[in-house]
Design a protein around this nucleic acid. Structure first.
Lengths: 123, 123
DNA sequence: CTTGAACCTGACACCGGTGTCAACTTCTAC
DNA sequence: GTAGAAGTTGACACCGGTGTCAGGTTCAAG
């Protein structure tokens, strides 16, 4: 599919998609004229990329991880090296801590919302 | 306490603490000579600020929220306006989605780690 | 006093994903 | 073949919290 469709279907800007490709996160064929032609599976992949970005990983690390994931095809095409595994374990810890932060922050918000709720109308 | 101590006790850089103050997130007395003198409770407050930052809120929103929280003193000093509550509810939704992303990303990492674990040593 | 540590303000830069403008090319459908 | 939509590359800028350097002042201890 063309970049416009991919952008529409994933909700990600074309600029970002080109950037992903440039970073090696995404691969595309090209038409004779040079237009990108993405495979169907790119849709899922873009969503994964976004999730990993949201989890605070940078494009370098994502590029290392992606080939080690099992595609919808089957098993992973590349095996993670021990060094990479160590880094991923560290990332995992970071993600855990981040989830903790988020949960606490959500509680804070709830508290503020709740405190306002009971009294906004009343005196 | 002085900024150096606050930095040491919270693990946050002095630069950031000054920035927080500048953004109205933190208040300090000043010595006759102009040095900052933070109250004891600043420690907890800085930690809260960091959590909210980690949750993706910017300093403007944090500045709005902080006075609506109950301090360790007692009740909140300011009540959230309905408009602010609406914004906070939106933030809350964003946080929920982010937690979802994080959990999925963590699963991805686990999957990669696991896939590598069983075979790193073996053929 | 004097001296060294600690603090002050201000400024510059970074990161890194994303928006956007520009100038040009390709595709599609008539 | 031709017009208009859609795509291409390249460059510039932003955000916003944080690191850091510079030049000067204050604090605390001797």
């Amino acid at each position: 599919m063309r970049i416009g469709e991919l952008a529409a279907r994933t909700g990600v800007g074309q600029r970002s998609l080109r950037y992903y490709e440039q970073q090696g996160l995404l691969v595309s064929d090209r038409t004779p004229g040079g237009h990108r032609d993405f495979p169907e599976r790119a849709v899922d992949r873009v969503i994964r990329i976004q999730e990993l970005y949201a989890a605070g990983l940078n494009s370098t690390k994502i590029a290392q991880i992606l080939p080690c994931m099992r595609d919808e095809d089957g098993g992973p095409s590349v095996r993670a090296t021990p060094a990479l595994v160590a880094e991923l374990a560290a990332e995992r810890g970071r993600i855990d801590r981040m989830i903790g932060d988020l949960v606490r922050s959500r509680e804070v918000l709830d508290e503020v919302i709740e405190a306002a709720a009971g009294r906004t109308t009343a005196a």
